[in-house]
């Protein structure tokens, strides 16, 4: 009996080697999502990929692989065979792994298939907060040292980068940083009054702003956002921010360096077309994300610039574990 089973399996194995000479994709593709089910990376990837599947004429099986701020998923894809059948669906975090001492690898080992979109940071406060603008917040902090509670999400997260920017532009802020494990729980805490101010991504806060359960203080961008035209930008509050902005988290699809050109080309074309799909664009728009849909060298340049800005910002804020200079990350503008 056992010999029969094994015989059958070997036969299948041989049969299948003959098939794999076909064009890409000859079998299903694994899409490894760096973050948990229900998160924004998950939602974005699960809504763009069905369109890409149509173009590819193949199947992408998506898996959430969480842990260690996404490093588990990154390492999994980096260690898999670079044949185009294992794709990483991730966010910006890996570009800070080396600086923050969270890992040795980042996207420089990967080929960017598509950087889909980027988010816009916004500073929000509870509806009853005694300040309604960026300037009023700064004045309030100065008058009430050590009282205002800022939500944060650990070193390297969006809030830590934004507060690092604020400290670099405004000088040391005497506030309390209360740590949360994601912007969702932190924004919930903001509504419950456990924290007072929270730097978040626009999409996560926009519905609450519309409902009046959160108050927008400043958009961290160089231009006002068309979804919230009345909210002033941080640059309007302090010219110093123009050094760092625009800045924002992003989502992208990657394959490991060394993947055959055929696969890279097919995937790039598929995701470029998928990102143009109307319902996907509408989704990104309602969630307040700015579409990028870039790939190739353009994407590489974006990644390098992003890494340089952010890593040096963390270094100047004293949050970096490893000096970006030692890691070969150039200073912004160098």
């Amino acid at each position: 009996m056992r010999t029969i089973v094994f015989g059958a399996m070997t036969a299948l194995a041989f049969g299948a080697t003959a098939v794999s000479a076909q064009d890409y994709p000859s079998r299903e593709i694994q899409g490894i999502i760096q973050w948990g089910a229900g998160g924004s990376t998950d939602t974005v990837m699960r809504s763009v990929t069905p369109h890409a599947e149509e173009v590819l004429g193949g199947t992408v099986v998506m898996q959430n692989m969480t842990g260690a701020v996404g490093a588990i998923a990154l390492n999994y894809v980096a260690d898999a065979e670079a044949d185009g059948y294992t794709v990483l669906m991730g966010a910006e975090n890996p570009m800070l792994y080396r600086t923050m001492g969270l890992g040795e690898r980042d996207y420089s080992e990967f080929v960017p298939i598509n950087l889909l979109a980027r988010g816009t940071p916004i500073l929000v406060a509870g509806p009853d907060a005694p300040y309604s603008t960026y300037a009023e917040l700064m004045a309030y902090i100065a008058e009430h040292p050590g009282e205002v509670r800022f939500g944060s999400t650990g070193p390297g997260g969006l809030p830590s980068v934004i507060t690092a920017m604020m400290q670099s532009v405004e000088g040391e802020l005497d506030v309390i940083f209360v740590p949360y494990d994601g912007d969702g729980p932190a924004l919930t805490a903001l509504q419950g009054g456990a924290i007072d101010v929270m730097p978040a991504v626009l999409g996560a806060a926009i519905e609450n702003i519309r409902a009046g359960t959160m108050k927008p203080l400043a958009i961290f961008d160089t231009e006002r956002n068309e979804r919230l035209p009345d909210v002033a930008t941080a640059v309007e509050g302090n010219e110093g921010y123009s050094t760092y902005l625009p800045w924002g988290p992003f989502f992208g699809v990657f394959v490991h360096e060394g993947t055959p050109d055929e696969a890279v080309t097919a995937l790039t074309a598929a995701y470029a077309q998928a990102a143009e799909a109307e319902d996907f664009r509408a989704l990104m728009d309602t969630r307040g994300f700015t579409m990028m849909n870039i790939s190739g060298d353009e994407a590489r340049e974006f990644l390098a610039a992003w890494q340089s800005t952010t890593a040096w910002l963390m270094q100047e804020a004293g949050l970096a574990v490893n000096n970006p200079a030692d890691l070969g990350i150039p200073r912004p503008g160098e």
């Binding site: 299948l12 194995a13 299948a16 098939v19 794999s20 000859s26 299903e28 199947t59 059948y85």
Partner: peptide, 12 residues
């Protein structure tokens, strides 16, 4: 050693 993905693709 079992080429699962290829087998599934054949069926698909």
């Amino acid at each position: 050693i079992v080429p699962e993905a290829e087998i599934i693709q054949i069926f698909r």
